[in-house]
Design a protein around this nucleic acid. Structure first.
Length: 583
DNA sequence: AGTGCTACTTAGCACCAGCGGC
DNA sequence: GCCGCTGGTGCTAAGTAGCACT
């Protein structure tokens, strides 16, 4: 059996999967599809903006997609209480399954999680069940758990055909529910599926972990669309909670979740006009800050010495927000969420002051949990109230709030770092390493962390062994070249065959060196990125025009730094940015 | 000025399709 | 042709901030 690679080289392949013509055809089709996509793309950034507050003029959609109904346990799967078989009511059984599914997770060993779960589970039980089942410790979910594991396994072992059928079914759902019509343009919806019921998993030490997240019914759903539009049809036998026609908001569907009582929304995809325009606007505000940031900085420096305590506090907060890119830190209701803080909600215990530390004077040591319970730890040498702070900021510049500083400092850092780190003469791999390093500087500033990938050590080791192998190969190639040169010299340079051999060997050495360099760069990049997440800043804080301009300057295609969905999201920037763009 | 509500952005993680290497 | 790995995607929690109301 010949290898596929060879197939493409020769036409004498015995069983070619696709002929050259077919391959070419497929390629053409791909190009055509891309062109069509480009053709049909709504170039909203070239259009006039709507009057203030108006988000759309026409909106039509199919409503939300509901998760499947609960399927009762088969007769051979049982739940046991205190060693005795118990047939649960449908409602209680469904919640039991939620817990059983998570049994491998350490969540289910936590006291808070178990207590919350048990309390909410009992609410779903019949009176008889409730009086019987009093102790979670006596519950045996073993068979249910095993059934769940078997199901997961079976799904993994599906045949190609089954997988294909599933994929097609999913595609059908996307086709029906995944798009809406907004002002004559078909737009992709971001999250058109209603969140399925289950047990709430907060982040960090969340006081509500384990509570039952209830199944959402059509009767809980508010639909938002045009008066003139076809109103989405609720599932048979059901009705919507409300249908409204509010074009000052961007959501299509909303409901209230039962854990925090907050509202959830169905909104458009990041590549839509509504999201893109807002994103663009965000970076424009941040750019404006550039022109007045010097003034603002000198003002808060002098405010540090103000006689008014509140002014001094404001100055300190602003200093942290600017210098450390801290989040604003809104007030939160105590006991409702994990105990996390931002700039204005920092408490005394989060800060230690040192007159001297690590050879530096006047060091502030920060140690607190921020958004998503991610630890912020930093030591900074230095020279409460959010709404007040934002009011002050907006008086300094229209549109200025605390979070604009994060956007501003992130974007300006990227721009400066790119300028500092990259040269036009660098290789592609080197340029990309520099780009990632610039991106990394921003991620560190913004404290965007990730858990080191589970397979990190292992995958580094494999990469290292590949590098070692390549090194050996290079040594071999080099000695081969030397040998060839020697022979060529001995036989005289007139020998044409030997000359080409030398050239060939030279090329092999060069290729080898390039590949080695590329892998070494990759290893460096990966190592430096072990605990850093680049995606968040790339997607939310870095003005894409900086990156697009940089690519143009460096002669790199944008798809080296942006994948498909990122290119979609930033289509406006890719289209409008010139080489000389300055943030 | 404080508060609650609403709307929207930002965030990390689980999962899996698809790709390259063998 | 298979298998392991990883980048991309989906999911949904957790933030920010404006506004209406008191």
């Amino acid at each position: 059996m010949q290898k596929k690679v060879k197939c493409e080289d020769s036409n004498e392949c015995k069983k070619p999967k696709r002929t050259k013509g077919e391959i070419e055809e497929a390629r053409q089709l791909k190009i055509k599809k891309k062109e069509e996509e480009e053709q049909s793309r709504w170039r909203w950034w070239e259009e006039e903006k709507y009057e203030d507050g108006v988000k759309w003029r026409f909106l039509e959609h199919s409503g939300p997609y509901f998760p499947p109904e609960y399927q009762p346990l088969p007769d051979n799967v049982h739940f046991y209480y205190d060693g005795k078989k118990v047939k649960l009511s449908l409602a209680a059984e469904e919640v039991a399954l939620f817990f059983a599914q998570m049994l491998d997770h350490e969540y289910t060993t936590k006291k808070v999680f178990r207590e919350n779960f048990f309390k909410d589970w009992r609410k779903e039980m019949t009176d008889a069940e409730r009086s019987l089942i009093q102790d979670l410790g006596k519950c045996d979910f073993g068979e249910i758990h095993a059934m769940h594991k078997a199901k997961v396994e079976a799904r993994k072992n599906m045949t190609k055909e089954e997988k294909q059928a599933l994929k097609e079914a999913n595609q059908k759902i996307v086709d029906e529910f995944g798009y809406c019509l907004l002002d004559h343009h078909r737009e992709r919806i971001g999250n058109f599926k209603i969140e399925p019921p289950g047990l709430f998993r907060g982040r960090g030490e969340h006081p509500k972990q384990g509570m039952l997240k209830k199944r959402i019914q059509p009767e809980d759903i508010i639909i938002n669309c045009s008066k003139e539009a076809c109103i989405p049809v609720p599932p048979a036998g059901h009705r919507w909670k409300e249908v409204r026609h509010d074009n000052t908001v961007t959501w299509l569907v909303s409901w209230t979740e039962n854990i925090q009582g907050s509202i959830k929304y169905i909104m458009l995809n990041a590549n839509s006009k509504l999201k893109g325009e807002k994103d663009w606007e965000k970076y424009e505000v941040a750019r404006k800050l550039k022109s007045c940031v010097d003034n603002i900085r000198s003002q808060y420096r002098s405010d540090l010495k103000s006689r008014q305590m509140s002014t001094r506090q404001r100055a300190v907060a602003l200093y942290f927000i600017d210098k450390l890119a801290l989040r604003a830190g809104n007030e939160k209701e105590e006991g409702e969420t994990a105990d996390t803080v931002g700039c204005c909600s920092l408490r005394v215990e989060h800060i230690t002051l040192h007159e001297q530390m690590d050879g530096k004077e006047y060091v502030v040591e920060f140690d607190f949990l921020g958004k998503d319970s991610i630890r912020y730890y930093n030591k900074v040498p230095v020279i409460k109230k959010t709404s007040m702070l934002n009011k002050h900021l907006s008086s300094l510049m229209p549109g200025l709030t605390a979070k604009v500083f994060r956007t501003y400092n992130a974007s300006i850092t990227l721009q400066e770092q790119l300028k500092e780190l990259t040269n036009k003469s660098d290789s592609v791999a080197e340029k990309l390493l520099s780009y990632n390093r610039a991106n990394r500087a921003v991620a560190i500033l913004c404290n965007h962390q990730r858990a080191p990938p589970k397979t990190f050590d292992q995958s580094m080791a494999t990469l290292q062994s590949k590098i070692d192998a390549r090194k050996e190969q290079l040594a071999l190639a080099k000695s081969g070249l030397k040998q060839a040169k020697k022979e060529a010299k001995a036989k005289g340079s007139s020998e044409f065959k030997l000359q080409t051999l030398v050239e060939r060997k030279k090329a092999a050495v060069k290729r080898c060196e390039e590949q080695l360099l590329k892998m070494e760069i990759q290893a460096t990049d990966r190592e430096e990125n072990k605990q850093i997440a680049l995606g968040t800043s790339k997607l939310n804080y870095l003005d894409p025009r900086i990156s697009v301009a940089w690519c143009k300057n460096m002669g790199l295609p944008v798809d080296k730094i942006y994948n498909k969905s990122q290119r979609d999201k930033f289509a406006w920037a890719i289209d409008m940015t010139e080489v000389d763009f300055e943030f």
